[in-house]
Simulated scan of single mutants.
Amino acid sequence: MSYIYIIIAVLASGGYVAYSSYKISSLKTENQSLSQAIQVSLRANKELEIALSESEIEHQKNLEFLAKAKSQNEKERVYVEKIKYKIIKDNNGTCLNAINDVFSRLQQQTRDSNNTKAKSKERL
């Protein structure tokens, strides 16, 4: 009779070993798929970091451009105010004087623009 218990114990332990092997192999495949997913996530994270840093650089350049544009706009506003007060202050002044002042300012802007273009071509 003890042989029957031994056979049942051996069968039970064999079943347990088989079930454990199955579980271990399924956990290994799940671990591999999770590892692959982590690698994909890490690559995507690195690409996002690169894109973010490029975006920050571009944002900084845009802020600098806006600051320069604001500065230029302020210069133009001051210049127009100066001409306006000059016309108001000088009662003997004519519209021709104001037109000459505006024309000289436009010539100066053209020269500045040409100089900027020439400098940017030299950098290339």
Rank of each mutant, 00 (worst) to 15 (best):
G15Y: 02
F103M: 14
G93W: 08
N115C: 04
Y3D: 15
I88E: 12
K121V: 15
Y19P: 00
A37T: 00
Q60C: 05
E81G: 10
N97K: 02
V80H: 03
V17N: 01
A18W: 00
L48F: 06
A9F: 14
Q39W: 01
A44K: 03
K82N: 15
S71A: 14
V40C: 04
E58V: 03
G15D: 03
N92F: 08
L63D: 00
Q36H: 02
L48G: 06
E49L: 04
S26D: 03
S25Y: 07
Y3W: 13
Y85Q: 14
N114H: 13
L34A: 06
Y19L: 03
N45V: 08
K68S: 01
D112N: 09
F103D: 14
K23P: 00
S53A: 11
I88L: 12
Y5E: 08
S21M: 05
K61P: 00
C95G: 12
K46I: 14
R77Y: 12
L52P: 06
V10R: 08
V17K: 02
S55H: 04
I87H: 10
F103I: 13
K117W: 11
D101H: 04
A69G: 01
L52C: 09
A67N: 05
Q32G: 08
D90H: 09
Y5I: 06
K28Q: 14
L27Y: 04
H59A: 06
A18C: 01
Q107P: 03
I7H: 08
S13M: 11
T29N: 15
Q60S: 11
E58S: 05
R111F: 13
K86M: 11
S20A: 13
C95H: 10
R43E: 07
K61G: 00
L34I: 04
A51W: 02
Q39I: 02
S41H: 07
E81R: 02
L52I: 12
A67F: 07
S104F: 13
S26L: 05
V78W: 03
E76M: 10
N100D: 14
K61W: 00
I24G: 03
I6P: 02
I8M: 00
G15N: 03
N91E: 11
M1D: 11
Y85K: 14
A118S: 13
Y79R: 04
M1F: 10
S26C: 06
E81L: 03
N31A: 15
S21E: 02
I6D: 13
K119D: 07
R77F: 11
S55Y: 02
N45H: 11
I8V: 01
D90W: 06
T110M: 12
K117F: 12
K82P: 07
Q109P: 01
N100M: 10
